[in-house]
Computed example of a mutant assay.
Amino acid sequence: MVLGAGLLLVGPAAAQVPPVLRVGVASAACPAPTHPTLVAAVAAAAPGSTILVCPGVYPGTVVVDKPLILRGAQRGVDARAGRSNVAAESVIDGGGAAGIRITGTTSGVTVDGFTIRNAGTSTQNADGIEAFSGGSGFTFTDNVVTQTTYGITMSSTGAVASTVAHNRFDTNNRSGAAGGSGVFVCCGPGNNLTIADNLFTGHSSAAVNTAGDAARPSTGLRIERNQSIDDATFAVVVNAKAAVVADNVVVRRPGAVVDAGSGIYVGGGTTSLQVTRNVISAGAATGIRVTNVYGAPNVGLAVVGNQVIDRQYGVRLSGQTSGTVRDNSIARSTTVGILLDADNAGVTVTGNRIGQDPLDCQDRSTGTRTAGTANTWTGNVALRSLPVGVCGRF
């Protein structure tokens, strides 16, 4: 069959790429802006658009109700170091209200390269970024977030992975006891969410608080390679399945005026939580604290390969019916290196090295397992233990 010369074959229509919008005042640093304010650009943008924001201060709350890519002047520039020249920043200033509010189940929002500040007052809660209504596919990277109630409050359904990375969260303590966290997973689960490679400093509650939702535990939550300096607590982990808290560094500097919290606090309702290879040094409370205060006993907990030095307790467990504390290195605790309270039964403590503490190992339970306790202790090396026999000697 021969096609006629006049027959036109038409392929699929090319996908339409939304235009790139630019926000700011025309200058050498801001050529050809399309909108003077970020609020106006977001209102005008088609879903999926990219909005480039020039250096400057942009007051008020930016309400996002569609998938957008917001890129500040420091997009792609790691916020953990440097970034001290405010004139070179795209600054979202909430003026006491939220900085960015992602509404409804809006998903697929990127916020990259901004300074976000001044959200919340002494009497009003407001966050740097609010994204807790049930979306997914969030990317919050390379931002300086400071002086808010919570730096980022978010949940994620996990339909598409979400990432919080390369940000600096600094003293987000507005509204007193109601705030005090850099990242707050709230009002829903943090599914398929990675919080990694961030710097947290000076938070009065917890740098990362994963309260989540007891009825919908977070799945696929990872908290990795972050640095915490002078935060009351680094991470609170509750209501999570197969979560990972790994390779974080938690430091309390001499003279820091911060509330006394644990380095890592496991509060209950977790299944197969892995707390591994974290380095925790100095501070008035426990390095790794495990309780059921906010949920059911933790099932399948593994506290493995961590280093804890100069805390009140190195590792302390209460109310657990399973779990493993293995291959940790603990030194110079002011009270006890590893403590199992009387209400633990079925925990295994093995292969740990504990030393230079008033009491290296203590198990307050009674039962038919190691040294008359309700738990199993094997291969631990220490100097002082109670009862005698739960830990061996150097």
Rank of each mutant, 00 (worst) to 15 (best):
Asn172Tyr: 11
Val275Tyr: 01
Ser204Gly: 07
Gly367Lys: 13
Thr153Arg: 13
Thr163Lys: 09
His35Ala: 06
Ala178Asn: 12
Val279Trp: 08
Thr286Asp: 15
Ala5Cys: 04
Ile264Lys: 00
Gly135Asp: 14
Ala5Gln: 04
Pro254Arg: 06
Met154Lys: 01
Gly76Arg: 08
Thr105Leu: 13
Gly269Pro: 01
Ser333Asn: 11
Gly76Trp: 12
Asp343Ile: 13
Thr103His: 10
Asn298Ser: 09
Ile309Cys: 04
Asn292Arg: 08
Asp360Thr: 14
Val91Ile: 14
Gly158Thr: 10
Asn192Ala: 10
Val10Lys: 13
Ala282Trp: 03
Val20Pro: 06
Gln227Phe: 09
Gly96Ser: 15
Cys186Phe: 06
Ala40Trp: 09
Leu3Arg: 07
Val23Gly: 04
Arg289Gln: 04
Ala98Phe: 15
Gln16Tyr: 05
Gly82Asn: 11
Val10Ile: 06
Cys54Met: 14
Phe200Lys: 01
Ser333Gly: 10
Ala235Glu: 02
Ala32Asp: 13
Ser90Asn: 15
Leu273Gln: 00
Pro59Gly: 09
Asn239Trp: 02
Phe140Trp: 13
Ser228Thr: 10
Pro297Leu: 01
Thr146Arg: 13
Thr350Pro: 06
Asp197Tyr: 03
Asn172Glu: 12
Val17Cys: 09
Leu7Tyr: 10
Ala46Gly: 04
Gly104Pro: 09
Gly389Gln: 05
Val303Ile: 05
Arg225Leu: 07
Thr321Arg: 10
Arg222Gly: 00
Asn192Arg: 08
Thr115Pro: 04
Asp343Met: 05
Arg222Ser: 03
Arg117Leu: 13
Thr106Pro: 11
